[in-house]
Design a protein around this nucleic acid. Structure first.
Lengths: 206, 206, 206, 206
DNA sequence: GCCTAATCGAGACGGTACGTCTTGTCTTAAT
DNA sequence: ATTAAGACAAGACGTACCGTCTCGATTAGGC
């Protein structure tokens, strides 16, 4: 029996360290320069890497920034604070904290803007960021159901659509507050947002 | 007595037609090329205008696109459909329809991304787009209060903060659904979103 | 009666100073770096000019160097030293002196090498360098005929072919001596070469 | 018994076939691409050899091309046509035929151009090409002397200098005619050139 | 009916980044 | 030790756009 791996690709293997250095350099450049003044030549320089090495791995600025930003969101965790409201407030505050960081602020919206004309980029954002963080909604719901705060669904498809809706409402509200309205999503705001989310509009207007 | 123009500057006056032509050309270029491939030279060419003329009126690409996109949202109207839920559904569908147009999709998020590092641009977006459309929330609440669907507020400041919150939730959810999740905000989705907004999360999960 | 020139091309006119600065910078770069390490970016930098300005006027490195080198040969003059042999020696020594300069040495042969695969470049070399210096052969012959050292031709076409032949022999020998054999074309060599040219091979072998 | 390799170096021996394949590939690339667009990566690919192998044997493009071109001139032979004039015409026509081949045209002048700034390369050209072909001049003179067409020299040093001069005149004239003037060195031209060389300028002008 | 002055179109200008290409070195596994 | 394969750092390529500038040619109002 021959070697298991087809034939272990010939030639010098790609440096694993380079990938990490490039993504870190990308975030550093986003902090210092912002999206529009970030250049791939500059990123390569910061990472101590040639431009070719960078282009061998990523198709362009968009793809690179998606990957660099996606890592930021992986640190989100759903805390167990004893109630659905408290859990939501906890995770929303974490999300707001990430969106307060300059490397996330300009990078995230810029790639979303580009993705409106680039199907592959849209898919990459969905895979690397959106779908990956939907786990928080699912975990939160499951925990609330275990506590008896929310009923269990009968229909799996409806359940999935509802999770998507909740994700759009939560993520959209925080992003809009932070980047468009350009106001901080502080504890007070998060408390009021969570109240609307759980009890509806009437609850805060009264 | 109002201000009179200081002394009606001498020399050839600026062409009024040029402004409209430039904004229209900008939207056309956004449709064809998207934000990142749109160049001011190209816009000038489409508008039949010299680059100098364009730079005399706008500081750069960002400012130009903000003005070009802002006009799109001025056509939003709050319909009177007899109930708060129906009114919300109506205006959200209009908003979703605008966000389905390519000149709005890439232009809007791009200038928001740029605004994270440019205070003046952020202010321009707030003035030209955000604050201008908050009227819809205020109108909707007033009408709902007149109908007795919502209570009247005692505290003006709390009322203002609530209006901001509602605006962030509504606009944020639609933008996220449309541009990030990249799914259509169709009637079914709008109906379910409105239900959550008015009655809270429990209403759709049951 | 309207203006004579069709309409005096619109727009900012090209800077005349830039042309001279670029050609001078090209020669300076040839001296310092030689042909193969000369870069257009470097030339632009030396000339205090943007790369675009350079590319607007010349198609590439080849064309630029042809023009820069061609100017060097325009300083050649046929001296009147009283005899054909002395006149030839005089002009050949001038030619050798130019070929001793580093900006001519590497530039000239390099563009000739490139011209073997580029018809337009070949034509440019012929026009700017070769044909322009053939005047020296014609002047020299005319003067020798006036002195009675050479007979007058009957046939104009034969006369032209002979001038071409002489030019190839003289220029070729000096270039080969200087660049290929890489020995100096000093007074001694020039004297012996002129002897062969005028009297034939037997004259020096004896 | 000839020299034996000192101690038959350990490890895998160098492939002898590779050298020939590389030189042939170099000439093929010169024909197709010319000097300036010839790359070592391309040559390696054509020869079915890794770039490493190529760099282990030659220092760079210049050295490789010198060797590839040098082989072309080794096929030159001095024909015995019965008279000095006929012998010269014969060998000059052979030389012209080689210079008509594209691999020689661009390769030869390019390495000469490079050699103006590279002493080692100049020496390599002298050794591999120039000195090697001077044998033709020496043979031709010896044969002419045997025939009584040329006198025998008394001074060996003068004889050597004259041989160099003749070589520069012959090679220089043919190269200049072929590459700079870009006209064919055909039989008619060679006949007239030989006449000048043997009898001097007066012979053709009359 | 001039005069004056800001506007207009055109396009050249100095810069800067692009994404690709080549160079010469290096790191693998295989021979 | 040499090989094929291919990744690597470095840096030039020729193009595109930016925002500014310099032109000559309009085009109004004020005189």
């Amino acid at each position: 029996m021959q070697s298991r791996t087809p034939h272990a690709r010939a030639g010098r293997p790609r440096s694993a360290a380079a990938d990490a250095a490039i993504l870190a350099a990308t975030r550093a450049a986003l902090v210092e320069l912002g999206w529009s003044k970030l250049t791939l030549g500059d990123v390569a320089g910061r990472a101590g890497v040639a431009k070719t090495t960078l282009y061998r791995r990523w198709a362009g600025k968009n793809e690179l920034v998606v990957d660099a930003v996606a890592e930021l969101f992986d640190e989100l965790r759903l805390p167990d604070r004893g109630s659905l409201a408290a859990d939501i407030e906890g995770v929303v505050l974490q999300f707001a904290a990430i969106l307060a960081r300059p490397e996330a602020r300009s990078g995230l919206m810029a790639v979303v803007a580009e993705s409106t004309r680039d199907e592959a980029l849209r898919e990459r954002i969905r895979t690397s960021i959106v779908d990956r963080q939907k786990r928080l909604v699912l975990q939160g719901r499951a925990r609330a159901q275990a506590r008896g705060e929310l009923p269990r669904e009968d229909d799996a498809e409806t359940a999935a659509r509802t999770a998507d809706l909740i994700f759009d409402v939560v993520a959209g509200a925080v992003v809009h507050r932070t980047l468009v309205s350009a106001e901080p999503a502080d504890e007070e705001w998060v408390r009021r947002f969570t109240q609307v989310l759980l009890q509806g509009l009437g609850a805060v207007s009264g």
